[in-house]
Design a protein around this nucleic acid. Sequence first.
DNA 1: CCAAAAGTGTTATTGATACACCCATGC
DNA 2: GCATGGGTGTATCAATAACACTTTTGG
Lengths: 223, 223
Amino acid sequence: MNDTKYAKYEQPGVTIDLVIFTVDEDQLKVLLVKRAEEPFAGYWSIPGGFLQKGESLDDAALQVMEEKTGVSDVYLEQLYTFGRPDRDPRARIITVSYFALIPWKKLAQPESRKVTGLAWSPVDTAPELAFDHNEILDYAVKRLRAKASYSNIVYGLLPEAFRLSDLQKIYETIIAAKLDKRNFRKRMLATGLLEETGKKDLVGAHRPARLYRFKKREVVYLD
Amino acid sequence: MNDTKYAKYEQPGVTIDLVIFTVDEDQLKVLLVKRAEEPFAGYWSIPGGFLQKGESLDDAALQVMEEKTGVSDVYLEQLYTFGRPDRDPRARIITVSYFALIPWKKLAQPESRKVTGLAWSPVDTAPELAFDHNEILDYAVKRLRAKASYSNIVYGLLPEAFRLSDLQKIYETIIAAKLDKRNFRKRMLATGLLEETGKKDLVGAHRPARLYRFKKREVVYLD
DNA sequence: CCAAAAGTGTTATTGATACACCCATGC
DNA sequence: GCATGGGTGTATCAATAACACTTTTGG
């Protein structure tokens, strides 16, 4: 920008911060990174980074995603932009927040989990975070819960093929409530968004489960 | 910001753009301003302005609102942040968009309507706008339609006291569909969000209508 | 008395909820 | 044969949708 022309306006730093969710061990978890530097050195924060020259906001979010998880083909949605003048003690910085969903299985490869300074924290026991990141996290959790109730967004937390009981578990975890198995299956199959893969899940000493997949791995709103 | 430390990052200009809605003549309308300067001189755009030093995003939005309409006590909600690198030909500028709702009556005072270079355009016949403002407008319309269906957000388009038929008209205008009068009234009164003012609207050669108001003029989600 | 909008109930349909037992497999 | 999770149907209740006439006022 032309500094003489725009001198009286703020030219803030712009960052992208990501709330990356997964469901693991029947808990909704969020990826946190430990800050090495001031401000908030030693605090946990959600992963983020500065917007690079020529980069779109979505690209910047993807960039952070790949950097921290090694994974890029995930559900990603812009959340909200936070810009309180004092939210960063260093300088005026506004942050465009995103939330992402990632199936636990994708992360189960050892290399993407061993990075130190990274941790998956259950959302309800998340520690005090740097900056206004608790606020961002709360906002993301609300959005996820709401959106799960009127869309098929949970596909982002599931692998390609899954059992209906997996799907139900994901819903129960997100909304923190038990659901009736028969009603749940009826409702899900009635949406017409699922199809059988024809395969069966053979693990365990019990009747094998049919495996389903989402016909389309993109957001569809119900009703 | 410290320019040496952050030199490799983008320091974009940050603007706030507002989609200001009202309902008038049974049409959903949006406030447009005519651009005098390049780029897009002569084009219509939605009102906006640069973020000022020390100003929060919400404050900046309010500022623009007051500047263009003379009104500040209105419904205002952050919408989405647009940041394609080429969205402004001058420089890298990202814009945090907001949408606002304003009751037509508030604008009916002559002084706030006479400003030249301002126009209320029906949303479905809006012209080609500057920058990516058509995209922002479309996004706002979708958000408004969706939110009207599961919240009491329409209070922002109504004066303090109104007839149930006014309320119904607003809904019909937003969702572009006719509603059944009896079912509509039953449903609205069942929400418990309305109360009678005790007064009656006496205009017109017909039975006077009871006037209602929202118990709380703040967003409540239904269900 | 006519025109105009306000106000009011009942029935049918649809969708949501509650609820319990048999099935297929591995060990 | 027993433990484990998979898979299925029906009856009740609640919410939504369809539908038409009487009332009150001003002119």
